[in-house]
Design a protein around this nucleic acid. Structure first.
Lengths: 153, 153
DNA sequence: CATAGGCTGGGCATCGTGCTCACCCTCGAC
DNA sequence: GTCGAGGGTGAGCACGATGCCCAGCCTATG
């Protein structure tokens, strides 16, 4: 794995704050030469430090202000079919296989409470899904953040 | 709420694929005039359709390849203190207040299994936290995605 | 001491940006 | 039907940013 030095991390942090920041702006902000930022940015991009696509769209602006976490138990034999079915549901934002009481953690978005119910019903109808449990997000207490990992301290 | 027409959605989708795409490139890609893309992009930005910062950094590249969901029961009276304590833990990526059996959904990242345990212990020591339950992410089955919401069908 | 790797500042052609303008549609109001 | 408003188009222009050179300067390493 590529190790990021202080300079790399500061560039990544600047890019996290504004993904559309120009090379020149970052260079000025960090007090570095333009060429330096340019070279490191290319290295970071080719080293897969940056995810292939950003999640910069706010679902609320797309008419889906509600969010929920659905845990599910599934029949292990039907895993592949289950994933294929899940993909067909646009409101399913992420699916992770987990340890613990349940096998799946599914994050969904929805238009309203009724819609949350609809989507969980759709999940229940996916192949191999046995039992689901839904936690509706009432409030974002700490918004998704990674900058504290990029620049510790 | 701003309603996004087909053109807006295509611009947002292009930006989701590559947050650093130039206005000119998007215009060419979508077969639109440069000025059109420029104007709409400004409108989208000022309408808070795009999140203030992207989550484009991969925690794995930062030495935190493991991920887990921690649910917790908390003493409601200590909510504010609990959140302040949680913020102090760099590995805490997101905290949401939820309905359901538990009060909190906490997403964490970690260096390895031991580190997951350490972080959950830190969460347990936060003010007002009574009981926690940890689900370690074993496999990403559907990677976080929003494009299917931006461009349905 | 010598070498290699990284940062710097400069220069340069090219491309992208932000802005303006004239022009063309289309749609709803009068 | 006529009118104006709103939005898209294509062109032009000054300026900024990019990608790519190169020479020079450090510092760490052998």
């Amino acid at each position: 794995m590529l190790t990021l030095d202080e300079t790399d991390r500061r560039i990544v942090a600047a890019l996290d704050r504004d993904p559309r920041a120009t090379v020149l702006w970052i260079a000025r902000e960090l007090g570095l030469a333009r060429g330096t930022v340019h070279a490191r940015l290319e290295r970071l991009a080719s080293a897969d430090v940056l995810a292939p696509h950003s999640v910069r769209v706010r679902p609320a602006a797309l008419g889906h202000p509600m969010r929920a976490f659905v845990t599910a138990e599934v029949d292990q034999a039907e895993f592949d079919g289950m994933i294929a079915d899940m993909r067909q549901i646009p409101q399913v934002v992420e699916v992770a296989g987990t340890s613990g009481d349940s096998d799946l953690m599914v994050e969904i978005v929805a238009r309203d409470a009724d819609h949350v119910y609809d989507v969980t019903q759709q999940i229940t109808r996916c192949r191999g899904v046995r039992r689901t449990s839904t936690r509706i997000v009432l409030r974002d207490l700490v918004a998704r953040r990674l900058d504290q990992l990029v620049l510790p301290g």
